[in-house]
Design a protein around this nucleic acid. Sequence first.
DNA 1: TTGTAGGCGTTATCAG
DNA 2: CTGATAACGCCTACAA
Lengths: 326, 326
Amino acid sequence: MSVTIKDIARLAGVSYSTVSKALNDSPLVQPTTKEKILKIARELSYQPNIAAKKLVSNKSKTIGVVWPTINRVALSTIVTMLNEEIEKSTYSMILSISKAEVAINMFKQFQVDGILVFESSHEIHNHSNTQIPITLIATSDSLYPSIDLRRGDAIYKAVEYLKSLGHRELAYIGHLRNDNDGQFEKYFGFTEALIRLGLNPRSEMFVNTEGLYADHGYQAMNKLLDSGYRPTAIVSGSYELTQGIIRATKEAGLRIPEDISLIGYDHIPQMGELEIPVTAVGVPSNLIAKTAVEMLFRYIDHPDEKPIVQRLEPEICIRETCRAIE
Amino acid sequence: MSVTIKDIARLAGVSYSTVSKALNDSPLVQPTTKEKILKIARELSYQPNIAAKKLVSNKSKTIGVVWPTINRVALSTIVTMLNEEIEKSTYSMILSISKAEVAINMFKQFQVDGILVFESSHEIHNHSNTQIPITLIATSDSLYPSIDLRRGDAIYKAVEYLKSLGHRELAYIGHLRNDNDGQFEKYFGFTEALIRLGLNPRSEMFVNTEGLYADHGYQAMNKLLDSGYRPTAIVSGSYELTQGIIRATKEAGLRIPEDISLIGYDHIPQMGELEIPVTAVGVPSNLIAKTAVEMLFRYIDHPDEKPIVQRLEPEICIRETCRAIE
DNA sequence: TTGTAGGCGTTATCAG
DNA sequence: CTGATAACGCCTACAA
């Protein structure tokens, strides 16, 4: 059995309602008594029972985060930032790496005040009857407040930038799946940019990676290099792909950016910490985290407002991997 | 206000305890009444208040995992396996990436039934008075049940294996900090192996990385290659370091294992998925996860048993990066 | 078979 | 300032 305010009350020789007040730093209790109570609480390493708190106040002061894909750098970066953001407030954050449905159920049991989810909204549609405010990160949706990362615009900006540097022979290395909206948006953004910017789209310009990790990027880049088509600039679909692309490029004896320019999706600090600081596009990870938390808090406070899709503007972060050509 | 069993009771014309029983499908209530109650509950779309349920049952069937370092592959691999292992049982798993003390406090508030922690025991010593069963992964300690990964033995096995292949000029690339027991164990294991196996320890054989990530390995390997000392085999302290070492080696035009052998610490599947499948030592990650969960469950069921330090035997997983020399 | 009463750990509202 | 006491929603003996 864990320690409760009653235990503290007994030891302090006061009533438990006094303990409750002292613990909540109420002005209605004498500083000396307060001090004594706090001291005992500390010694017993007392922790309030959230279930009880929730029962009476209907607040648990906790946010649950659904995070099934723990091994992508961009996502874990955002998770870290979410944690920092939430710790700044009066809330705590708990994580689940189970799939969305399982995770949400568990969070319900824990009576979290709000849920943040990375997974696509398809996974959670059967939960629309839930009372708990849910906010989606990285998937726009009309049922829940969600963030639109404008991945297409991001890639568009990348192409635009490359064009401004004189590049006309490009390639996009990414994971082209139509069952994953996020990946598809980027692919589509690339196509659209080529067309709108008057760059001739050709099939060699698209390299499918079959995955989002470094090795996929490595393989894809090698495939590209073998293909005979030699673009002057590469657009990469993720941080991990970028890693693989750099490796393949180097192994082929090509220098970045002297021989080939590179720009990657995922606006995270780590892009600048690769062996060559990589120019990147995307919504900055800290902005994503900050916005997500703000939106959720807002939704918690005003559950009746209509769910909003918050657009975030992708930015380009120029580092050292793109070079102008004549 | 949401609907409670009292509302149902009023509408059904019974007492609320009868409703409670009916809802829990107790045999102590007449089928007809039960039916009626269930029907009303459905109509009102009654949702039980889990906080209240929890309060009275005082069981959460949940394990909390303290995981402050989310960006090391070996750790996230183990976390994934822990989740699988725990999902097999009747328990759920929640994670916190806050530092140990904060995380443990939060878990206490949620009344988790047990806690698994990755952090070193120093961080949690002030919690020794806690009532919740805690089990340490990857740090041996006498206050809590914990797992001893025998990192020293693992490195010893690596050296032994290399010696059996004829190598005598070795190097250890790792993070030598004496404030981190785990890293120190490996370093020490290397030294001891050299001595006990009659290989002459020399200072060039130790390369300090100043960190545990790929870039640290890359820098360290370059430093080593520049130093003039040319070992025939390298022992690496972690998965990420291994990545960096491979890159540096390749860039230097050296082939693995033809020109130099490599063996890494961290017995995780990913070691076999690098561009060259890397021979590795360590306790297999799935064994670590399985053992940790077993130990914790055992501790939960028998809280009075004396905390045990469970030794796990490191294994060597031979892949393709070590070669015999004449 | 049903109802009553007590309690789970907190907070909040009153009296004293 | 402090202490009873009543909620919060549910479960579970124990009584009826």
